[in-house]
């Protein structure tokens, strides 16, 4: 039973659709959504509707900081991001806003843990940017595999039995064995706004039986997503960075 993980969709309909098709083609049977369904992108209604539909079919979903900002003005976002959140509020109906507000910060599916950012303080939205944050996150739970997103750059951390931490920049589309006897923290890249220099949408595929994780990349119609951002009058650089994957 393959599990697909989608993080940081950010209202990018084109990317999300392409990833869903790609994941099904690769045999994904379960879906876990790691937060930030809205923000930056031009299609929040469609993406939230799709998320609600998937959750109705059994998918798991956690809350992201942009989702939280929809009903909570105290989230710390930069000015342009805040502007898009304001625009998004005016697009979402009550059911959609209630759905986002009710999402949990973490989901514990032992031995796996799903969270948008670092697991030691999920409400503080700390970026897992280095071994230091990865160690804090792993130390805070007993999960053998934690899966998160938030930073938009794919990474894989592992902690040995002796507590030593290792970092790995995963190659795309190569299954990586998650050796037993270690604890792992998989940081998914972004579906809707990749920032590792590759504009292709990023998601994860986990094979729990084989204990292998694959960092998948999926090409999609980037131009259409960028044009939609400009057509909605949102900050144009959110579209430009889609084209560059930065």
């Amino acid at each position: 039973m393959l599990i697909a993980f989608f993080s940081d969709i950010h209202a990018n309909r084109q990317a999300f659709e392409a990833c869903l098709v790609d994941a099904r083609r690769r045999g994904a049977q379960r879906i876990v959504l790691l937060g930030d369904y809205v923000g930056y992108g031009a299609d929040p209604e469609w993406v939230v509707d799709k998320t609600m539909e998937l959750v109705g079919q059994g998918a798991l979903a956690v809350l992201g900081n942009h989702d939280s900002a929809i009903g909570n003005d105290r989230e710390n976002l930069h000015e342009d991001a805040r502007l898009v959140i304001g625009w998004t509020r005016g697009r979402l109906d009550v059911a959609q806003r209630d759905f986002l507000a009710a999402l949990p910060y973490t989901i514990d599916e032992a031995p796996r843990l799903y969270v948008h950012a670092d697991a030691s303080a999920p409400k503080r939205w700390i970026y897992v940017a280095s071994k230091r944050e990865a160690a804090d996150s792993l130390a805070a739970t007993s999960a053998t595999l934690t899966v998160c997103g938030h930073i938009h750059i794919p990474a894989l951390y592992s902690m040995s039995a002796g507590g030593k931490l290792s970092h790995f920049t995963p190659a795309s589309n190569v299954p990586i064995p998650l050796l037993p006897g270690r604890r792992w923290l998989a940081v998914a890249g972004a579906v809707g706004q990749p920032r590792d220099g590759d504009p292709a949408a990023a998601y994860l595929l986990l094979d729990p039986e084989k204990n292998e994780i694959t960092y998948c990349r999926c090409a999609y119609d980037v131009e259409a997503a960028a044009k939609a951002i400009i057509a909605q009058g949102l900050p144009a650089w959110f579209g430009d960075r889609l084209l560059a994957g930065r």
């Binding site: 592992s158 040995s160 030593k164 290792s166 790995f168 190569v174 990586i176």
Partner: peptide
């Protein structure tokens, strides 16, 4: 080249 190098890290 495509898998974590645990020796290097550890």
């Amino acid at each position: 080249e495509k898998l974590p190098d645990l020796m290097q890290e550890e």
